[in-house]
Nucleic acid binder design. Structure first.
Lengths: 121, 121
DNA sequence: CATAGTGGTTCCCTATTTGTTACCGAGGTT
DNA sequence: AACCTCGGTAACAAATAGGGAACCACTATG
């Protein structure tokens, strides 16, 4: 099972999607793309993400080479996050997705309401 | 919590992403985009998805107005799925993401290996 | 009679994800 | 001395995702 026969690219797309395709990763990239450099607690406040999930998400993004982490060993410590070159290049498809989302949000809501009404009756 | 203050669009993007952003939805859209019309068991075979998840995914996509379902009351029954106009428009950002994924898969793998090695030592 | 084929739905169980809370260290502030 | 800040980590609890198998209706075929 799960051999995805018949759609060879599906498996690879699937691979990448399961890495960078989660909600928080995308939102972190969007935030960093907009603001350039952000500190840990700035991201946390901006996104309304829990400390734990932000920590995990940033660690994954750093591991995948999309985000660069700069640690300043001051007291209190200061850590800055920026996009790497690959992270920058990720902006384009993500922006495309974001724009589509904003443009089609109302259509989706309308479709949902219509569907729910037609099912309920 | 979770008020996403400071990034008003984030919440909305988040909304849409949590609807159409899961792995199976994306793969179903890709398959339908490529083949035009597919039946339930064709999708199931192509994607290696379980019957349950395919059923749930298709129902959601239909509800969101991305997929159109045509039921032929023959014996045995025949159901055909196609993309709606909005589903077609979703192809573009998804394709962009797919191309990025294919282009950067090896880079991500390399970054991962480098990161893991630097942490392990 | 039994079986297969089609498009599901429902129940059960497990695995993964996500959130909550508490805690840390080192130095500065009150 | 007590408390605050920053950037996390560890432990625990809850929610969700996902697979597998069984079942359904209906009919044609062997």
């Amino acid at each position: 099972m799960l051999d995805t026969a018949g759609c060879p690219d599906c498996k690879r797309i699937n691979d990448v999607l399961s890495r960078v395709g989660d909600r928080w990763s995308v939102l972190v990239v969007i935030s960093l793309a907009r603001d350039g450099t952000l500190r840990f607690n700035e991201l946390k406040k901006n996104l309304g993400i829990s400390q734990r999930m932000l920590s995990l998400t940033l660690k994954e993004l750093e591991r995948d080479g999309l985000v660069h982490r700069t640690y300043h060993p001051t007291i209190p410590p200061k850590v800055e996050y920026t996009l790497t070159e690959m992270g920058q290049s990720f902006r384009e498809p993500v922006s495309a997705l974001g724009y589509w989302a904003l443009e089609n949000l109302t259509k989706i809501d309308a479709a949902r309401q219509a569907y729910d009404k037609s099912v309920a009756k």
